[in-house]
Design a protein around this nucleic acid. Sequence first.
DNA 1: ATAGGGTTAG
Length: 840
Amino acid sequence: MAALPFPLPTNPLPSLYTPRKLHNSSTYFASLNQIAGNVQISYKSYLNQISSLCKQGHLPEALDLVTDLELADITIGPDVYGELLQGCVYERALSLGQQIHGRILKNGEYIAKNEYIETKLVIFYSKCDESETANRLFDKLQVQNEFSWAAIMGLKSRMRFNEEALMGFREMHEYGLILDNFVIPIALKASGALRWIGFGKSVHGYVVKMGLGVCIYVASSLLDMYGKCGLCGDAKKVFDKIPEKNIVAWNSMIVSFTQNGRNAEAIETFYEMRVEGVAPTQVTLSSFLSASANLGVIVEGKQGHALAVLSGLELTNILGSSLINFYSKVGLVENAELVFSEMLEKDTVTWNLLVSGYVHNGLVDRALGLCHVMQSENLRFDSVTLASIMAAAADSRNLKLGKEGHSFCVRNNLESDVAVASSIIDMYAKCENLECARRVFNAMIKRDLIMWNTLLAAYAEQGHSGETLKLFYQMQLEGLPPNVISWNSVILGLLNKGEVDKAKDMFMEMQSLGICPNLITWTTLICGLAQNGLGDEAFLTFQSMEEAGIKPNSLSISSLLSACSTMASLPHGRAIHCYITRRELSVSTPVLCSLVNMYAKCGSINQAKRVFDMILKKELPVYNAMISGYALHGQAAEALSLFRRLKEEYIKPDEITFTSILSACSHAGLVREGLELFIDMVSNHKIVAQAEHYGCLVSILSRSHNLDEALRLILGMPFEPDAFIFGSLLTACREHPDFELKEHLFERLLKLEPDNSGNYVALSNAYAATGMWDEALKVRGLMKERSLRKIPGHSLIQIGNKTHVFFAGDKSHSRTKEIYMTLALLRMEMQSTRCISVIS
DNA sequence: ATAGGGTTAG
């Protein structure tokens, strides 16, 4: 016998491989006894040594011992090979395991046909994800026991062949094998992945019947399955019944909440876990960070980061990515960059996240810069990042970025991804390039509901109700039933086209088909009614919405407030303001802006100022709203002083600010200020002048009797004049006696916007301003003929050098004779007759 | 057994 490299233990321990419970194979015990009978004591010691070496991962050393035994001519039993294979399973040591497999085959059928060894081999190949070998061996098995079944099902589940895994589960049951606490988690995982809640629930029933619920593996799998199926309530019930929750149970609960959008509950559960004194892991913290990011809660997320550092957790891909995601979602880009630089290992997701983070925070240049770095390091951004880049391009109407992204997709074959394609379609639509959007849509082979909805929304937004409906029916012909979002788009398209009755019909029809209108449906309808001049109906609808138990969120509140502005209805606006206060709804910046806007547009500039003053931390949009309010009220001095205050607080004005301030100057006839501001905008702020800015300039110039100068300016513009510019010109030359000029402008306007009632109003006002009442009335008649409705609202009326603003139902100005005249004009706008009588 | 990023409606 060869010398041993270490002394033998004097009191050898019993064999380490005790059969797992539920094992009932008789051949297994037979082979064990056979070996035990004719083996010397040293065999057991060797087995012990081999076993402990295997457990510590010293597989080559263990193999050396086996060689020693072979050289000593000692018959090696299945137990030794079993230990070795188990070691290979722990280490996922494929090639070593294959060597051992070879030795087993060499040693003849006695070992190779042993059930225990056969099973172990199936387990080994399964764990190493060697599907083919594992399945081949499994099919050749003499006895397919619970162990081999569990291994094969685990393999199928890892390969995401979830249906197959569940079929196996069923088959096992049919063969009368016991479904133990090892296979049940696999079956539950597969049901969760497939969202087969029915199957999952029946497994739950079995678990209860067999009393397997006490097993923590089974319980946490159950909880995970319910979470994956979107049933957080059931997940919570399972969770609450677990007497001693381990970290996996806690994590699964937190993950379930996060993945179902119940972020607040995820955070709450995390705190409960902290109270219990359970130490968080990476899984805990990445989910917690995800929840914090979704809620935009900075303090919590930072606590998570601190805790990760305190717990000494490594900054792995997943934890680091979660941190980057959190910091960029809450706007702390520098922190995201810091984490990124601290990470030792980075994968595509990490890079992509920082790119998306930049895009999300409007740092498009930095995002593109990072994309270049990625490319130079031969890393590719994948479909997920591209989808978010395209969404950003869509939001910022950045066609250039969008096209760059699109061509990248084409070059890298990413456009076949439905999510990417949808975001490309949306980008083209938002950049008012419907043809390109349509082309991308048509080129797709596979189209999902979201993609159809994207295109529907694109046509609806532009008021192409006919095309929207066509698509709506086409998708149904292709077997895709529309959902609420599809219906919402159809209704929006009709409302944008002014087809109110059809929109209302659709609203009824969707309900009769069992599609429940959601918050957006209601808001769309309410705003559409308001925009089509049906204010009272809009408010009745708002009441119906409340009765239906739908609570407005901050976005729908903003929409409702702008509906009030459209109607110029102060009472309705006040009602909503009260509603906000009464319900103690959170007042976000957009809501505050809409409030300021609403009060200004409904004629109550003082109330607007009061809301403005109440805002503690004033951001640019709030300033913009207030400045535009002053502009509307002709209070140019106040607008200018607010503009100065903005600069004092180092807030950078944007193009919207300049639009408002320029229009204030134009209404007040401040020529010098207006021109200076225009130059400030272009040269200091590097803002490219848009049609609105030129429009204001035109009206400034023409009001200072520089109509010729204005016309020259338009000819020198870098783009074609749009409807806004013609509109400004028409308004600007109101008092100009040139009848033909007005008609010409009107014709150009109608070509651009045939259905805009505002153009008719502008022309009739222009006629009226020079006393051409008959012509003014004729235009009104034409409007009626074409069944265009005048939208009630404020009116800007030029008298002499000054612009006056009037609001529907506003009596506060009706003092002077001048005012009387303008009120008459206003009446005329509203009713188109009776104007003469008011004047007299 | 548990873990990170995306696309549609106002």
